[in-house]
Nucleic acid binder design. Sequence first.
DNA 1: CATATTTCCTGCCTGC
DNA 2: TGCAGGCAGGAAATAT
Length: 309
Amino acid sequence: MPELPEVEVVRSGLAPAVIGACITGIEVLDERALTRHSVSALPDPAGRSSSRAADFERRLAGRTIGAAVRRGKFLWFPLEGAEEAMAAHLGMSGQMLLREPGAPAERHERIRISVEHPEHGELAVVFADQRTFGSLSIDALVATRDGAAGGHGDPLPLVASQAAHIARDPVDPAFDERAFRDALARKRSAIKRALLDQTLVSGIGNIYADESLWAARIHPEALAADLSTRTVNRLLAEVRLVLAKALAEGGTSFDAQYVNVNGEAGYFAHSLNAYGRTGQPCPRCDRPIARVAFTSRSSHFCPRCQRRR
DNA sequence: CATATTTCCTGCCTGC
DNA sequence: TGCAGGCAGGAAATAT
């Protein structure tokens, strides 16, 4: 559920609080929140335990955060004086919350990182995650293939290794539209599946895929390769409009799953035209929105506005 | 090689 | 009131 707009709300909310802050404490309450963290190949100089939690804590303690960066749904926080970053993926239900030092544990709190900011003083950065699909990690920073900035939030051409294999997102100035069109032309799968393929374009999940296809009047099961260049361009334009509008409204919140760093919900759920509106009238033509199974999830679309062609 | 399916997880909701 | 089953789904792993 946290897709590009929601992750960007988190990034921009965290940025002023953590950039320039020194990490003074790390508490790993649930090691499942470190499933994507690889224990360093280098031996611990002090010969301490090499559990995920111990390795994560050791490599983070005393470090200063230099930036807050996002590509698609991936976040990372470069650590000053190191070729690595703390990376974060919110998965389905991950939250990053800013709390006062000593604040009581959040429901589903997995990791707490205490920081000391030169201007804002002490703060707690809390990673909470109900469904545990999200995770934090220490990640190497690697050079970008195209030499452009790694993501939004840092001009350096470096990207967290976990996010290095995914495509840039559609709001990235260095997003390669031609490469995207060419990749779609070679795909034998449906356009909906292609929109969710983070190696083609990143940041889009089930909600914004359905909303973008509705806006562009494209059937989710239309074959990607069948779309004309003009249609793909229209789709990209609608994707960008939908993402920008959702960001402006603070993201989509259905329940307490997605919230900003202060625990507040976004408003975009009220602006959805197709997603989750099965049986309700299409805002364009009043025909009931249809729902079809799509792997283990659903696609929502208007059978009149979105013809398979 | 490309594409499709399975897996991880918890909490809410529905139906019996 | 209880409880099984369905559903939500990002991305890596596994299967076709």
